Each structure stands twice: as C-alpha cells, then as structure tokens.
Simulated assay, not measured.
Amino acid sequence: MFSINRELSFIKNRKIFYIISITLIIIGLSVGFIRGFNFGIDFTGGTMFQIDMGQEVPVADINKVLKANNITADVVHAGEQNQEVIIKTVQAMDTAAREKLLNNIYAEFDITEKAVLSVEQFGPSVGDMLKENAVKAVAIASIGMLIYIIVRFEWKFGVAAICSVVHDVLMLIAFYGLFHIPINNPFIAAVLTVVGYSINDTIVVFDRIRENLGLMKKNQTEELIDRSINQTLVRSIMTSLTTIVAIIPLFVLGGETIRQFTLPLIVGITAGTASSILIASPIYYQLVQATGGPKYKAKKSKSKV
C-alpha cells in the first residue's frame, strides 16, 4: 500500500474539476444527440436469428454476409463449443428480407433451413418501455439513497451525493455517445451497479468528514474537508483500482455480451471514484458555505476506513 505524504487541496481547485467534468459531459452528450446514440435491438426493435452453424464460425465471416445485405447487427456466439450464433439486427426485417438473408447464410456456410433455431421480431414499443423503466429505476434508487443519507447524515450530504450520482450517469452516457458504442440491456444493469458502487465510495468520504466535524473549529470547513478526502484517498483509489483490475480480464476474454456489461462498469467505476473525491465533497462544501456552516456534529465513529 502506498501513502501520500503531502495533503492535496481539492476544495481550492474545485472549479477546475467542475469545468473538466461539465466539458466532458457536454461534448459527449452533444456528439451523441447530433449523431444519434447507438441504441441496440433492445431499444430500437429489430429481428433476432439464432442459427446452429454446426461449427464455430468467426463473427467476421457472419458480418461479411450481413454487410453484403446492408444489415447492421450484433453477432454473438452461443451453445456448446460456440457452434450457434445469435444475430440481432437493429432493423425490423420483413419476410422477404429475412428469407433473403437466410438464403445467403445457407449458401455461404453450407447449411439448411433446419439449422435455424428461432427467428423473433421486436417492436420499438419494447425499447420505449425499457428506456422508461431504466429512468424509473435510476430515479427510485436515487430517491432511496437520498432518504437514507438524510437520515444517516444530513440533507447537505444527501444533495451532494445525488449530484455525484447524476454526474456518473451523465458521464457514462456521454462516453457512449462520444464513441458511438451500442447501448443494450447490459448497459442498464451496469448503470444501476455503478450507481450503487459510486454512492458507497462517496459515503466513505462523507463518513470521514462527519467524524472530523467534532474536531472542527470555526471557519475551518475547507481544511477539514480536504483533510478528510486525503485520509480516504488511498482507500478509494485502491478499492476502485482493484475492482477494475478484476473486471479487465472479463472484458478482454469474455464474449460480446460480457463486454457490453463490463465496459460501462470500468468507465462508471472510474467516473464514480473521481466524482466521490472531486465532485461530491466540493458540492457539500459549497452547500455548507451557502447555509452558514455545518450544523451537524456526530459522535466519533469507531469504524475504520
């Protein structure tokens, strides 16, 4: 475990952190809205084929056939020894288009129509419902965390924590908008995971601030918060780094579906760690300054961070 001998000034440089975060979010969201977010079949609707190829066929070979038919789709392996492929198009294909694509696949890979295990059509209404439920899930989680933090700490901590969570979600969406990465169901699961992980990291910093409140003298809010962040800095960085190191092998070695879940986790955990240190605590500081100083002083906690 490494240590930091010199205390860093986070509150003093808070405006720099705000500007960097807001700039990144605006750029990512602007590119996403102008170019259009890359919503997958789970959100746009489309057609899904599951075909038994009889052997493991490279995804690149399947994509060649799809490209020849001007079809954009996600292709993943399935079944024992990856002998099956699942093709998810983002276009709703009619009967003629489906038959044309399947005939090309039969001819290219020397299989028959018996190899087709299933063909399913998804309407855009399903995608709209998923978007609505995803927003509701994040909102309910945020409200629940806000209530808990207000009861456990005070409202200033709660507001600062929710601002941090919103920052993480927006940063994740901006990242996907900027790099045009497909957004599917695993993305929603990853967002909810990141929300929980981020709030936990933020609570650790806030708990240390609360412990130090009993030692605070008048007009020492900035020094106290900086000291609290520095006291938990190594813990926050090392915990997140350890988690990311464990996820990276899944991202590299896992299939396409696993990557759709692990990529937003890596990005979200990174953003969550940064926001817990650089966003949440400075926002709490500004709320304290705006309301005339902290009014809550808890007994010293025996917990160790």
Score class of each variant (00 low, 15 high):
251 F>D: 15
213 L>K: 14
162 I>S: 02
203 I>G: 06
191 V>H: 04
210 R>K: 09
90 V>Q: 01
287 L>K: 11
36 G>P: 05
283 I>E: 06
34 I>A: 14
32 G>K: 13
268 G>T: 05
209 I>C: 08
106 Y>R: 12
272 G>N: 00
278 L>W: 03
267 V>S: 04
73 A>N: 00
184 N>F: 00
174 A>M: 05
59 V>W: 00
284 Y>I: 12
196 G>N: 12
288 V>Q: 11
210 R>D: 00
240 S>E: 03
156 K>H: 07
86 I>K: 00
146 L>W: 05
135 V>A: 14
275 S>Q: 08
302 K>R: 07
101 L>V: 01
278 L>M: 09
53 M>P: 10
241 L>K: 10
281 S>T: 13
6 R>A: 14
178 L>V: 14
168 D>A: 01
283 I>W: 04
142 S>H: 09
289 Q>V: 01
197 Y>I: 13
302 K>A: 08
72 T>L: 07
170 L>H: 14
143 I>H: 05
210 R>L: 00
264 P>A: 01
210 R>I: 01
243 T>M: 03
62 I>N: 08
47 T>W: 00
291 T>Y: 05
58 P>C: 13
283 I>P: 08
87 I>V: 00
28 G>C: 04
120 E>H: 05
303 S>P: 13
159 V>C: 08
52 D>M: 08
251 F>K: 15
138 V>G: 03
296 Y>V: 15
152 R>G: 09
192 L>T: 06
230 N>P: 11
62 I>S: 03
42 D>A: 03
8 L>H: 15
177 G>A: 10
73 A>S: 08
110 D>E: 07
240 S>K: 02
93 M>D: 00
7 E>M: 15
257 T>D: 04
271 A>F: 04
79 G>T: 12
85 V>T: 01
199 I>H: 04
159 V>L: 05
25 I>G: 03
39 F>Q: 06
290 A>R: 12
142 S>I: 11
100 K>E: 01
288 V>S: 13
52 D>V: 07
71 I>S: 05
92 A>G: 13
223 E>T: 15
47 T>K: 09
45 G>A: 09
104 N>K: 14
303 S>N: 12
89 T>K: 10
32 G>S: 12
130 L>M: 03
206 F>C: 15
162 I>V: 11
86 I>A: 02
233 L>P: 10
102 L>V: 05
35 R>N: 12
273 T>V: 10
